[in-house]
Write a protein that binds this DNA or RNA. Structure first.
Lengths: 108, 108
DNA sequence: TCGATCCTTCTAGAAAGTTAGAATTATAGG
DNA sequence: CCTATAATTCTAACTTTCTAGAAGGATCGA
């Protein structure tokens, strides 16, 4: 994980609509959700949703699998863990102990 | 922590320059860094730096303290921890265990 | 092959972000 | 009060993002 990748993933999550998409996918669990179901849940235009999903896919936070005519979207937990690890390691080093849990978690 | 706050903080960090600013402040430790030192380290225009710092201050990821003519900037570890906690709780719930460490960490 | 469903891509306009030079404010020292 | 230092705000140009209607591509059943 380098700083450019981390920034790109943070930027992808740094939009309320996309963060909501991602959170909805996480709550959907391992089976994921088709794009159409996401559209119904979030009530946004199909083209808008498609663009947002593409951004999340581009930074590897979401993966897609085609099943016939529907496209299943799933949250990529490994990528999120990588991002959380980067932030804990690179951006939360605190000798006062305020960030100790996260930092020690990775070191342990 | 609500989704709007989380998105705003993620957006603030989702720019390579700002993420670099934040990381530099983290590495500077509890004593922080004056804006001028940040400018020398990062080699960007003063006005540009000021705008980026303001964004980080607005979302409470960075705090500032005036000492005579210099403004000391410090990373706000508590805010970063709050953000990491939100992501672990709301966006990394994985029954397969891939995200279990982060989720259990907060619950414990 | 035709039609239906599902989703993406095209296109375009409005809105917001990024950058930095110039001017301005804030603070302190002489 | 004047000057110097430190940083912000103003301004403007450029780029990017966001949104969504319209058109197009992919897949499958009949």
């Amino acid at each position: 994980m380098n700083i450019e990748t981390a920034a790109a993933q943070l930027e992808a999550l740094g939009n309320p609509t996309r963060l909501n998409i991602y959170r909805t996918l996480v709550r959907a669990g391992g089976s994921g959700l088709p794009v159409g179901k996401l559209q119904l849940k979030l009530d946004i235009a199909a083209s808008t949703l498609s663009h947002h999903i593409r951004k999340l896919v581009e930074v590897n936070l979401v993966s897609q699998e085609r099943q016939a005519t529907t496209l299943i979207c799933r949250a990529n937990y490994a990528s999120m863990n990588g991002l959380l690890g980067y932030l804990a390691d690179e951006c939360c080093i605190d000798e006062t102990g305020a960030c100790a849990p996260a930092a020690s978690e990775v070191a342990a």
